[in-house]
Nucleic acid binder design. Structure first.
Lengths: 249, 249
DNA sequence: AGACCAATTGCGCGTGACGCAACGGTTGGT
DNA sequence: ACCAACCGTTGCGTCACGCGCAATTGGTCT
């Protein structure tokens, strides 16, 4: 492990919260500000950070560039785009695309709701494994032993009255999701929002990603949400076809 | 300047091109592969890179997270969103939001075209200063001496028959843009695409960002493009209002 | 004008990052 | 089935490089 690099990455983390001064950064990372200055200079040379004014540093444009280039590489994202956009236009609600990457579920694309009440989320954000529709879909795609492994590693933080808080309940839910072909988040993550999610499959039928529609409860009750499932599945299948999947068989 | 950090950032740059192996990275950065390994391990611990398979590394999810968190902070982006989305739905064409950051023009948001023929671009990408509508808008907002400075520093790479290739012509164009209140890219960047751009203003009338609409020539001829200007200006003004700008006065 | 605060520079010390060489696991070829 | 070639990984000795201290500059508020 490289010490200076490690420190520099910690700085970037701190800067993600918003612009910071040299001193703030030094304190946060527990290093001398001289060191911070040197690291920032290097980061600045690579456009990873930029100076806001004389004393504030903020994240630089190289980050946007890198991140979006990397996102562009994820083929699912590009292939699924038309189907998801259509679903977004059809329903008017927030549509997410998420994938499982190295032990976590990450949003890789997002289509905003047309309504004013919206879910807060962000591309790049990690989705909680136990209380989001996308995560349930992705984990339900794993073989039984792997599901258990994941279920065992989760911290079942209660976020609402409906949040699943035990591994047993989670595993049962996953089985139901796999059976049904779609997942529901019945206000398990946030009180005022519920979601439905479905898998996007690749050539060999493997699950590449998950699509979800998130709706504020004031706009649509539970039955109304479930009524969106056919549209959701249609969109997910369309995205799957774009990823090389062939129906039936 | 920190050597190890510098090298690590170079690695990230290389990885932006797509997944790479240890050896490829070592060669690219002109360092021993042991060194690369150590740096990658640190980067991996911070989720800046992730292993694809046994031998390939790719950019990790922390990057998406950081970048989108930082983008979220840019108030213009959030404030301008409804107006731009509306413009995108109204015209059906690609809408970009760009801002001037430390000597370069960067796309900070994008709304995809409904059509199949599209412009290739990406959030985080840098826009050429001499042949894009957004850059012209942003540079035209500078006072005369600063415009000269920028004009002098540009490499006027010819990309199409219409590309502006001299500082004099560029300065004249900027004057016209400032006068008119909008900019045109008459296939100066790519043969088959032309754009119009306009400024988004803040509280004190200062230019915060630039909006543009990009259209393939086969879908709309030059007159058709210019016919979009009123809609563009309306959207830009609406975005400006959302940023605290007050019309007239 | 003076005092204060934060960013910046110079410098000498010591650590941690470096490249080498040897190892080991996997792949592909005969 | 064996071997060869390749690539990732490990241990280690060396010295460059990154470290923190203390002093300086620059900028702002009273």
């Amino acid at each position: 492990m490289s010490q200076s690099l490690d420190r520099a990455l910690t700085l970037l983390d701190a800067l993600a919260e918003g612009p910071r001064t040299l001193d703030q950064l030094a304190e946060h990372a527990h290093v001398h500000k001289t060191t911070v200055l040197r690291l920032l200079r290097t980061l600045e040379a690579h456009r990873f950070v930029q100076r806001d004014d004389a004393r504030h540093y903020r994240l630089g444009t190289a980050l946007f560039d890198l991140a979006n280039r990397a996102l562009d590489d994820r083929d699912v994202r590009r292939a699924a785009e038309p189907a998801l956009r259509e679903l977004n236009e059809l329903t008017g609600h927030t549509v997410h695309l998420a994938s499982y990457e190295g032990g976590e579920v990450v949003y890789i694309d997002k289509y905003e709701s047309r309504h004013h009440v919206r879910m807060y989320s962000r591309v790049g954000k990690r989705a909680a494994l136990h209380c989001t529709a996308v995560a349930k879909v992705l984990v339900a795609a794993f073989p039984e032993p792997r599901r258990r492994e994941v279920a065992g590693s989760i911290e079942y933080t209660r976020l609402t009255a409906n949040t699943i808080t035990t591994a047993e309940a989670y595993l049962a839910e996953l089985a139901a999701v796999a059976e049904r072909g779609y997942a529901v988040d019945d206000s398990e993550h946030e009180d005022f929002i519920h979601c439905v999610g479905a898998p996007v499959r690749g050539q060999r039928g493997e699950v590449l990603a998950a699509v979800s529609v998130s709706v504020p409860k004031i706009l649509l009750d539970y039955d109304g949400l479930l009524a969106l499932v056919p549209d959701l599945l249609r969109a997910a299948d369309k995205a799957s076809v774009a990823c090389g999947w062939t129906p039936d068989r």
